[in-house]
Design a protein around this nucleic acid. Structure first.
Lengths: 235, 235
DNA sequence: CCTTCTATGTATAAGTG
DNA sequence: TCACTTATACATAGAAG
C-alpha cells in the first residue's frame, strides 16, 4: 500500500520535471478546513471514517514506537463504538482511575469500604507489580534500580536465557534426529524397493524405478530447509 | 531501530562523497521510520512527546469535526498519565463498558449477576497470563512452546539482557567517574594542605603532615576495588 | 460504507540551540 | 525537556465509482 503510493508519488515527481507531461490535470484544489463541525452529513461521515482510521493508526504507532500504553474510545455521532487499547482496556482504565483518584483530594467514599473493591484493587496492584517486573525483565523501565538490583536482574535474565537456550537447543536436536531417523528409514525402504525393482526387471517384470533417488534427495533436503537455526540478529 | 538508523546515516555520509550532492543539502534528511520500538531513549522520549501531541490534536479534531465522543488515555513508559476526553471521561468509560459487556454473547453465568466479578475475573485472567509470561521469561514452563516460540522468547530475553547490561554498565561507569572526580578533588585538596603545611613548617609553626600522601593512596584504591565491571557483552 | 485518485495540508524525523 | 528549523513522509479534502 504505502509502497505503491511511494512509487506513484515518485513517478509524479519525475513527471513534474517535464513541463509538457503534466499541468493539465489541475482540479479539486484541496482546501484548508476549519476545525468545526462539518455541516454536510455525508461529508461528515466520510471524514469521520477517514480520520478515525488515522487517529487509531497514530495511536497504535505511538504505543509501538514509544512503548506507551494507550486506550482510545470513540463513539460516532450515531452511537457506534470504536476502540483500541495497546494492552488491556480494563487495566488501562483501572490505572487511569487510580491516577485520577489519587489526585482526588476528596476520599472516594464508598469504594474503599467495599471488600470486593478492595480485592479488586489488590488484584490490580499485584498486576501492576507483575507488569513492572515483566518490563524490567525485558529491559525496560530500569531507571529506578540501583547497582545491586541491576546485578540481580542481570543474573536472573541470564539464568532465564540459559534455560530458554537449553530448551530451544533440545527441541532443535530432537527435531533433527527425528528427521534423520525418518530419512534413513526412507532410504532403507528405497534401497529395498530398488532391489526389488531390479529383481523384477531381471525377471522381466519391469517396474519403473528411476525416481527413487530423486525421492531420497527431496526428503533429505526437505528436512534441512524446514529448520532455520542461525538467525540474523538485529537489535 | 538503531542499526537501521546507523545504516541510513551511513548512506548519507556516502552521499557526501559525491561533489555534485551539495553537502549542505544533505543534512537532516528525514528518514522513513519503521513502526517498532525506538531503541534510543532520548529519541524515544522526543518522539513520544511530539507524537503524543499529534494524536491528542487529531482526536480533538475528530471529535469537533464529526461530532464524536472520544476518550484517550496515554501512559508514558515512565508511567506518566496523559488523557483527553471530549466530554466526561467517566461517562465515556461507562458507556464503553456497557457496550463491551453487551457484546458478551457467552453468558458467563455468575458474572452476569455480579458486575464486579466480571471485571474481577477478567483482571485475574490477565494476571494469570502475565504470570505465565513472567515464568517463561525466567526460563520456566517452557514445555508447551514450539521452536518458533522458543526462538522468539530467546530473542526477547536477549534483548532484555542487552538493555539490562547497558543500564548496569552505565550505572557503573557513572559511579566510577563520580568517584574518580571525588578522588581528584581530594588529591587537590591534599596537595594544597601539604603546601600550606610545608609553608607553615618553613615559618616555624610545625604541623604534622606525614599522613597526607597515605590518605590519597587509600582513596584512589578504594574507589577502584569497590567496583567490578561486567564483561563487555556482545551478541 | 469502502476504494481510489490527486494535490495539498500537516505531522514529524533529524538536527541545533 | 522545550523550541525552532528544514525537508520529507504521511494524512486527507474533494471528487468519483
Amino acid at each position: 500500500m504505502s509502497c505503491q503510493r511511494e512509487f506513484k508519488s515518485g513517478e509524479r515527481d519525475a513527471l513534474k520535471g517535464f513541463p509538457f507531461c503534466s499541468e493539465r490535470t489541475v482540479k479539486m484544489v484541496r482546501q484548508k478546513i476549519q476545525i468545526k463541525k462539518i455541516d454536510n452529513l455525508t461529508a461528515r461521515q466520510v471524514t469521520f471514517s477517514k480520520r478515525r482510521r488515522g487517529v487509531f493508526k497514530k495511536a497504535q504507532e505511538l504505543s509501538t514506537l514509544c512503548d506507551a500504553e494507550i486506550a482510545l474510545i470513540v463513539f460516532s455521532a450515531t452511537g457506534k463504538l470504536f476502540h483500541y487499547s495497546s494492552s488491556s482496556m480494563m487495566q488501562l482504565i483501572e490505572r487511569h482511575r487510580g491516577h485520577t483518584e489519587n489526585s482526588d483530594k476528596l476520599g472516594s467514599q464508598p469504594s474503599l469500604q467495599l471488600p470486593e473493591n478492595n480485592s479488586y484493587g489488590m488484584l490490580s496492584k499485584i498486576l501492576v507489580d507483575k507488569t513492572r517486573e515483566l518490563r524490567q525483565l525485558k529491559g525496560e523501565d530500569l531507571h529506578g534500580l540501583d547497582m545491586e538490583e541491576l546485578i540481580r536482574l542481570e543474573k536472573m535474565v541470564l539464568g532465564g536465557l540459559n534455560h530458554v537456550v537449553d530448551a530451544k537447543n533440545d527441541k532443535f536436536l530432537k527435531e533433527i534426529s527425528l528427521r534423520k531417523k525418518k530419512a534413513s528409514e526412507l532410504m532403507e525402504e528405497n534401497a529395498k524397493l530398488k532391489l526389488q525393482a531390479e529383481k523384477s526387471e531381471a525377471t522381466g517384470n519391469g517396474i519403473e524405478q528411476s525416481n527413487s533417488s530423486e525421492c531420497i534427495t527431496n526428503i533429505s533436503h526437505g528436512s534441512d530447509t524446514s529448520l532455520r537455526l542461525g538467525l540474523p540478529f538485529t537489535y
